[in-house]
Amino acid sequence: MHKNGFFSLLFHALFVTFIVAPLVVVMAMAFTSKGYLSLPTEGLSLRWFRALADNQEMLDAFALSIKLGLASATIAALLAIPAALAISRYDFPGRGAVTGFLLSPLMIPSVVLGIAFLRFFSLAQIGGSFWALTLTHVIVVLPYALRLTLASTIGLERDIEHAALSLGASRWTAFYRVVLPRIRTGVVGGWMLAFIQSFDELTMTVFVATPGTTTLPVAMYNQISQTIDPLITAVSTVLIVGTLLLMLILDRMVGLDRVLIGEGK
């Protein structure tokens, strides 16, 4: 291993501080006993966590965001697998165009997408439902699922699938028993990124969310634009700690660097 020099260590320390400090500040503010945002604060209290537990709107929004994230990430992953296999395997006419099209939501500003969806839903009169919202999220998170799935299918040897077929496996069995385990890390990583993107998405969702379909980021945004009370910091703290725990569990179970960076050989 290479030893880091003084300046390198200093740089990393500053960098980590820069990233982590805002999170720490937000978390510290959540434990205030005052009715406004303050730091440093006198009097530690869990009153804002109590307030959060009593805030049905916020809890509903949280549940909706989880549901939305699970649904849109799963649908995106299921669409990404066949798309990635086709793109990496076959040289069909319009391959570049299809790839570009599927990845294009990355390049379109969320605001533009939001306005487009709003207009589309009001014309088609299907706005306001959970599945309409899911549809918009699938479109937005598909590029993330596809990119990571593609990364694992591009290096995939065609031979192992042929070997499975020659041994008598049907196409489905060959896919399920041989191909899927080979691209699993890409699919899982893609799914996770897609989930995070969906859970986090605000700019586009603000346009299409209705009172019945308010996601957590939208609810938080509404909250903070109406009142400035420490409730929002309590929500943030729960999210930060929750994410941290989730990451730890995932790392224990599958190894995060393997999923997000790729399989080490």
Partner: peptide, 19 residues
């Protein structure tokens, strides 16, 4: 179809299932 031919094939890359 290949899966119904009942042939044994040894591939150049061996194509073993790594998992």
């Amino acid at each position: 179809r290949p899966e119904q031919r009942g042939l044994g094939i040894v591939f150049q890359s061996y194509a073993l299932f790594p998992h």
